[in-house]
């Protein structure tokens, strides 16, 4: 796939170098406990392998099987790519991907990823904070929510030819969630361009929510006053809510969310307790103070 800009993230710094540098920084952080560094948004858990992350995907636009996205996403055209940014913003318009990519500094963020199906991974994303994008386009005071849409192109996305969901896939965040520094517009993983099966060229990552909130292959971002529809909630209001925060106390009506299996151990992938807000409670819990999370699930 030709890249819009010739530089790939991996061209900037060789992987082993930044891995070493991160270890060094991590060591320094422990030594001097600089708040700025200690606030590092990455987990120190071991990331899943590139193969695991790119062959086990839920991307129903390409089929229901976890292997379907890796098999069929190759036919999706991701260049050219533009994002239509509109609604309650000061500078609406169609933004070319290259311009979007410049809206914030690209960082590496190693996040836990918890699927609503009760499995999880650890993924080293590259991306920039959604807050930078929102600042660039100018959020109007009346905006309270951000709505996202995935590409709708049935000729390249075979899953969209079946009516399994109401395409295009839609997601949404409350503005404070969207502005949260953990919320990422991810453009790659493991220092490489985003693989198509993982939502190339650009996707959302909201690590304290179930994976389906982290919408892939985004073509539209709209700032709204009212809570937008999200596809899974629309598909089954009883089972999927707008917030969809990881919460072991609020079970899916059909299965438990108390624990999860961490992908990667083969036949002996260990099951572990699920932590509220996927372990990001220190950073995000205050946003939901006063809300009944069993109602706002």
């Amino acid at each position: 796939m030709p890249s819009r800009n010739d530089l790939k993230w991996s061209d900037v710094t060789p992987e082993h170098v930044w891995l070493n540098r991160r270890a060094l920084l991590g060591g320094m952080a422990g030594l001097i406990a600089t708040p700025a560094l200690a606030q590092g948004y990455s987990t120190d858990e071991a990331p899943n392998s590139f193969e695991e992350i790119t062959t086990y995907n839920n991307f129903y636009e390409f089929g229901l099987d976890k292997g379907d996205p890796a098999r069929y996403a190759g036919q999706m055209t991701t260049d050219p790519w533009a994002i239509e940014i509109g609604g309650l913003v000061d500078r609406p318009g169609s933004y070319d991907l290259a311009d979007v990519m410049k809206m914030g500094p690209i960082e590496e963020r190693i996040y836990r990823f918890r699927c609503v199906e009760a499995w999880s991974m650890v993924i080293p994303w590259n991306g920039f904070q959604l807050s930078h994008l929102l600042d660039k386009v100018g959020v109007q005071p009346s905006a309270r929510y951000v709505a996202f849409e995935t590409l709708l192109r049935p000729e390249e996305m075979p899953g969209q030819r079946s009516r399994i969901l109401d395409w295009p896939y839609r997601e949404g965040l409350r503005l404070d969630e969207a502005m949260h520094p953990l919320t990422l517009m991810a453009t790659g993983l493991y220092g490489r361009d985003m693989p198509k099966q993982n939502g190339a060229p650009i996707r959302l990552v909201v690590p304290w929510k179930y994976g389906f909130k982290s919408i892939k292959s985004i073509v539209k971002i709209t700032l709204t006053a009212d809570q937008p529809l999200n596809t899974w909630k629309q598909s089954n209001t009883r089972e999927y809510g707008f917030y969809s925060n990881v919460n072991p106390q609020v079970n899916h009506p059909r299965w438990s969310q108390a624990s999860e299996r961490r992908i990667g151990g083969g036949f002996f992938s260990s099951r572990q307790d699920t932590v509220i807000f996927n372990g990001y409670g220190d950073q995000v819990a205050q946003m939901y103070a006063g809300q009944d999370l069993t109602k706002d699930f």
Partner: peptide, 19 residues
Amino acid sequence: LDIQLRWGEIGADILRRPY
């Protein structure tokens, strides 16, 4: 291999999860 003999969850699942 899946629920890994977490008996508390197994019991709750059998009672509460229709599937």
